[in-house]
């Protein structure tokens, strides 16, 4: 019925592009301007969501869905989680000094001018797209990740060996494992030490009964909130 609305209706492509582009850029600027950290998180979510829309428009459906799933649905939830854990009144809005703002504005303006100049410098990049309907990209990506290339080389590409991505894929998986272990360790270290210190303190106290200072509990720790209310 409405099959392939996005790619067949070329007319809408431009309109939707401007819509998503304005949303993405506008909320990105919102992240910079906002002082309230929770608002910043919200603007970031909306900006990255709009960017996922841009990915869909560019024909990279898999990356767009990935962006929504991992970036917006995973990473940012984690980030918002962190914001909530640390969002106590004095830290919700930490103001930046006006001098810093002015300096940052100057740097940003020059950087932006440089990047825009670069973006428009190559003539081939400015030609409108030919509107070739993109191949469904999920399967070639999946196959490329295990080291086999089935996709056609893009027109005009120099001939040569096109590598698969098996090694980077493995490196990334090991990296993720390391990160998993590392993050778990970082998040747990405090509590474990406290627990042992309490035990040591208790045993020492039972022997000689000195005044042992029990290390302070982790304040506002994640565990207290996660199990909050049920104890």
């Amino acid at each position: 019925m409405t099959g392939c609305l996005m790619l067949a209706a070329v007319n809408f492509h431009t309109l939707l592009f401007y819509l998503f582009a304005i949303l993405a850029c506008g909320f990105a600027v919102g992240v910079v301007v906002a002082d309230n950290v929770v608002r910043m998180a919200l603007y970031l979510v909306l900006s990255l969501g709009a960017t996922a829309g841009l990915f869909f428009l560019a024909g990279a459906e898999f990356i767009g869905a990935m962006q929504l799933m991992i970036y917006v649905g995973g990473t940012l939830v984690l980030l918002v989680f962190g914001v909530m854990l640390t969002a106590q009144a004095p830290f919700v809005t930490i103001k930046t000094s006006p001098g810093d703002r002015v300096l940052a504005g100057i740097v940003a303006a020059s950087l932006l001018a440089l990047l825009l100049q670069a973006a428009f410098s190559v003539e081939a990049w400015r030609r409108p797209g030919l509107g070739e309907v993109a191949q469904p990209a999920a399967t070639p990506i999946g196959v490329a990740l295990v080291g086999i290339r089935v996709d056609e080389p893009p027109a005009g590409a120099p001939p040569g060996v096109r590598s698969g991505y098996l090694l980077p894929f493995e490196i990334v998986s090991v990296h993720l494992l390391v990160v998993l272990v590392g993050a778990a360790y970082l998040a747990r270290a405090k509590r474990r030490r406290t627990q042992r210190a309490i035990e040591v303190a208790a045993s020492v106290q039972s022997l000689v009964e000195p005044v042992v200072e029990v290390p302070r509990q982790a304040r506002g720790s994640a565990s207290a909130l996660a199990t909050g209310g049920t104890r």
């Binding site: 582009a21 910079v32 810093d100 797209g129």
Partner: peptide, 26 residues
């Protein structure tokens, strides 16, 4: 019609916003 340069502009704005955000946020 939309060209690569349009996307590059969006990328540039996001990038700059990010740089400023890293620099000024405390």
């Amino acid at each position: 019609g939309v060209s690569v340069a349009h996307y590059l502009v969006v990328g540039a704005i996001l990038f700059t916003a990010g740089i400023v955000c890293m620099a000024v946020k405390r």
